[in-house]
Amino acid sequence: MYVAQDWTDYELIDTGGGEKLERWGHVVLRRPDPQIIWPLGKETEAWLSADAHYHRSSSGGGNWTYRTKIPEKWTIGYRDLKFHIKPTGFKHTGLFPEQAVNWAWMMDKIRAAGRPIRVLNLFAYTGGATVACAAAGAEVVHVDAAKGVVQWAKENLQLSGLGSRPVRFITDDVFKFVQREQRRGSRYDAIIMDPPSYGRGPNGETWKLENDLYPFLQSCTAILTDKPLFLLVNSYTTGISATVLLNIMTTLMKPKYGGAIASGEIGLPITASGLKLPCGILARWEA
């Protein structure tokens, strides 16, 4: 498992009973997590005194209850990077801290490349990977279909003091954008993606990861340069294993580019128990 262990502004304090207790800077949140199927044991004062608690609804969605007044949004840091945190109506906070293992890896690869690197970040959300790659010196094209999260990503770039870096933020359907880049002859040295399990396009197009990931990745390899640096696929889709991602990447990348491929789970250390919480899977190809 790739474990994000070098946080100071984030901590996974405890887990159990389908929930996790987390510190985001100075704010402690209590949220559900479907991976946590072990019991909590004792509901300690730390659990009871969480600043905010997200409760799932039996009809879908849920809501936050607040024990203390917290800011609408606040800032946390990872190394020299800064991010706005904001509890949303879908239990998320705008950042997935386990992704720090990918940020650190990408930054190292870009800095060691010794040449200009152009990165395409697809399904880019609030821009954790975008900010990391820009901080390492890359040119980045950030694409997401949701206008609100693209604006959030712009704020994160500014927070990190990287507003002058060559980053293009594009609000667009990711699949159509990649097709247009193929027609335009655009090329990238590195591609990052975190595709959803399911999706629906503006004209009723449907996306299902199990059916569509391979052909989509195939179209992405068509916009890589002749000497690409890396390709990273991250997934939170249950039922898809890291070995499946490994097999797809091997089939697509090895014959043309050689290189090395690794895959596995990503996760976070749990302070109270010493256990690790699995949070998703990845596959990485590198030159």
Rank of each mutant, 00 (worst) to 15 (best):
D6G: 00
E181G: 12
F175M: 07
G185S: 10
P34C: 02
R180L: 13
K86Y: 06
A283Q: 08
T171Q: 13
V233H: 09
R79C: 10
T243H: 14
L12W: 07
K276Y: 06
L81P: 06
M107D: 01
T251A: 12
M193W: 10
V140Q: 06
Q35C: 03
L246Q: 13
R284F: 09
L95G: 06
G61H: 05
T130A: 05
F169P: 04
L122I: 11
V178A: 06
T171E: 13
A242W: 03
P269W: 06
C133L: 02
A260R: 13
L209T: 09
K276P: 00
A242P: 00
F177Y: 15
T271I: 10
A222H: 13
T225D: 09
G18D: 05
K276N: 02
A262K: 14
R187T: 12
V101N: 02
V28G: 00
Y257I: 09
L95T: 08
L268K: 05
T44H: 05
L252W: 06
I192L: 15
A283V: 00
R111S: 14
I191C: 03
R79P: 00
Y214M: 12
D108E: 13
G77N: 13
A112L: 10
M253R: 05
A112E: 14
L277Q: 09
M107L: 07
A129S: 11
L40Q: 12
G60S: 08
C133T: 14
K20R: 15
T88M: 15
W152S: 03
G137Q: 02
E22D: 04
T15S: 15
K176S: 15
H53E: 09
W38M: 11
L81W: 09
K91E: 04
A145L: 10
G137H: 02
V28H: 00
D33I: 06
H53G: 00
M193E: 08
L245K: 08
P166Q: 07
K147G: 13
Y78R: 12
A50L: 05
G201V: 07
L246R: 14
Y2Q: 13
Y125D: 13
L282S: 10
V27Q: 00
Y214G: 00
S160L: 11
T126G: 07
K176V: 15
T65I: 14
Y10S: 05
Y198E: 04
G185V: 11
P71I: 12
L162K: 02
R118D: 14
T206Q: 13
L252E: 08
L95C: 10
A287S: 11
E286R: 12
K91T: 14
T271H: 02
S160F: 07
A260D: 13
T44D: 10
W38R: 15
V178T: 09
Y236F: 13
Y214L: 15
A113T: 09
S59E: 08
V3T: 12
Y214W: 09
L122S: 06
L224Y: 08
L246C: 04
S186H: 12
M253P: 03
L209D: 01
H55W: 09
D226L: 06
P269H: 01
V149N: 11
K256T: 14
